[in-house]
Each structure stands twice: as structure tokens, then as C-alpha cells.
Amino acid sequence: MLELRLVQGSLLKKVMESIKDLVNDANFDCSATGFSLQAMDSSHVALVSLLLRSEGFEHYRCDRNLSMGMNLGNMAKMLKCAGNDDIVTIKADDGGDCVTFMFESPNQDKIADFEMKLMDIDSEHLGIPETEYEAIVRMPSSEFARICKDLSTIGDTVLISVTKEGVRFSTKGDIGTANIVCRQNTSVDKPEEATIIEMETPVSLTFALRYMNSFTKATPLATQVTVSLSSELPVVVEYKIGEMGYLRFYLAPKIEE
């Protein structure tokens, strides 16, 4: 028996809107730790990792570990039917072939339940070690989204370079080139507008902007985004989900031939 009650149901709506275009089908894993997902996009260059810790739910009952295969597009369609202020409860029976999403309005005057069929999904689970990154950039998520969007009108790839001077986002295309440099800005009175660069070693990596733009669909989840870089490793773009967890995107770098 599984029963997870999330008072801030809008978080789940936002998570689904962020990942449904990147990943079609995925297994949601439920354990005593929390509700999690790890899934790759169809071309196996990007990976989504979601964790919603059990402590973040108002009620969390998971009698035994359960893996539920879901079509994310269909799940997003159902969650779209929940109001932004609704409380969302996810329910499933052990060994059952469906999951129920229950939506309660804040004053309990409307209760809806949507039942969705589960599916069997064969997925490869990657073992991602905890890594010390050479450079970690924390910046406003809206600024990062704006940069990725702007650069994708000029080129297909972005070169992200972190040096002592700041973080540089560069692209080039048929019509010309573009460079955007963000310097460290530790705004004390507005921490959500800060840009903080922690750098052990200068690092420069190239990524496909198409994926970066897809990751920025998670912008409504968090005011800040963390971009972690190490030479010859996938970048990690992380959006914190309040105090309860995170949505991380991993993207393999492009290597010059």
C-alpha cells in the first residue's frame, strides 16, 4: 500500500511540466527515503533525477519498495487537472496495475480522483557517484533560462567557461557569435538574485542548447539554479524543490572531433 499526501500539490504539477517533453516513460520509485525517479531521454545524452523526500509529505505511507512505470505525458495531463492550491495524494496498491491521483481543494469542497494505468518499463539505472565538481555556478534560474533562450537564437551549442572573472556562455552560428559573461554578485539583501561562483579549476565545456532549454522548463520550481561542471564530465543543472528535494538534469558534453 502506497499513500503519499503532498499539501503543495503544485510542486508535482511543475515537476511534470519540466520533464514530460524530455522523457516519455519512466519508473517512479517509492521507498522509505522518498519518491524518486531516474530516467534518460531517448537519445541517452540527458538524464533526469528527481527526489522528493518522505519528510516533505504531510502523510507518507510506503509499506514496501514500489516501482511504478508511468507515461509522463499522461501523468502530466492528469496533474494539469489539479488546481494550483490543491492537495495531491498519490495512491497505489502493492502489485496493482494502476495509480490514483486524488486532488482536494484547500477548503475540501471539491475532491477529484484520476486513475491511471501503470506500465512495465525496462530502464537502465545509471550509478552516478557523488563527485567534487571543478566549478559550481549558482545563479538566478530566470537569468539562466534567458541566456539559454537568447543563445539558441544564434547557435545550437553553448560553450560554458568558468574562470576567476566569472562564467561565460558563448555560441556561434551562421549569422554570428554571442558571448554573455556573468560575474559573481553576492547580493546580500536579495539572495535570490545572487550569482555565486565556486571554482577549483577553470573549466570549459560545450553542450547542446536544445537540452539546456528543455531543462529550463523547471525554472518555476526554484529562484536559483546550480550548474556544476568538471572537465569531461556531464554537467549537472539542479533546481531545488523547496526543502524537500531536487530536480537534477545531467547532460553529456559535446566533444570536438
Binding site: 539505472h125 545509471l126 552516478i128 547542446a208 545531467y250 558534453p253 559535446k254 566533444i255
Partner: peptide, 14 residues
């Protein structure tokens, strides 16, 4: 001019 790497080239499969 770039080749796109796959994630499996970096991380092991569990």
C-alpha cells in the same frame, strides 16, 4: 564539428 557523447560513457549501469 562536435560529437555528442552518451551518458553511459561516463557512468556505470546499476
Amino acid at each position: 564539428q562536435f560529437s555528442q557523447e552518451k551518458l553511459q560513457d561516463f557512468y556505470g549501469v546499476n
